[in-house]
Amino acid sequence: MIRLIALRELRCLFSMPSTWFVLAAFQFIFAWFFLARLEAFLEIQPQLAQLANPPGASIAVAAPLFNTAALLLMMLVPMFTMRLIAEERRNQTLALLLSSPLTERHIVLGKFAGLLIFLLALIACLPLMLYTLALGTGLDHGLILSNSAGLILLTASYVALGLYISALTTQPVIAAIGALAVLVGLWLADIGSSAADSPWHQLSPLYHFQNFNAGLLDSRDILFFVLFTTAFLLLTMKRLHNNRVYG
């Protein structure tokens, strides 16, 4: 049942021209940024080569690319999550799901999985792009792997938050703005507090991504993402249940 709902979500996404447009636009931005970083790296490479332990292409190109992708996804994910439940409610198609032999768990996990698979396809192009560099230089596989893992966990947490906010309202636009506001708010809380040990940092998904970005796998960060995602998924299930209780 979860698979069924996920597949419908994917089919619905790919039937909209806007999805293809966004996919194309983001690939273009990623590619442009990738090439710009690569050019900058090539320019300063002769100077870097004189250092004792020079940074390679992975740390100079891959890490900033993933960091930009993490920021851009913060803007992009709310555009996709806004529809998930708010639009079903507005078009009154939620009744079909609610009167079918499904539980809230099926609906929420199905929608979560559907959108996450779509976004994974979008971010899968990043490592593919980077591995074209392997033609000319050696790459740090560990760094790219930890960045990819971090980006997947980060995207999952964005989707879970967006899904919950979409479940709160009937208007997709409000869901988009709401999710964006919360994500940007968490990010600002992170970059706004100057003290290194400030607890505000701990709230932000982007802060926890920084370790992955530097190639460091910390179980605390992984736990944060798992908890963040699970909490919002559970809240969404609760909200859908309340839909039946309060109408």
Binding site: R8, R11, C12, S15, M16, N91, Q92, T93, L94, A95, L96
Partner: peptide, 8 residues
Amino acid sequence: SPPLYREL
């Protein structure tokens, strides 16, 4: 109102 996914 019929619960239709109009894009399908």
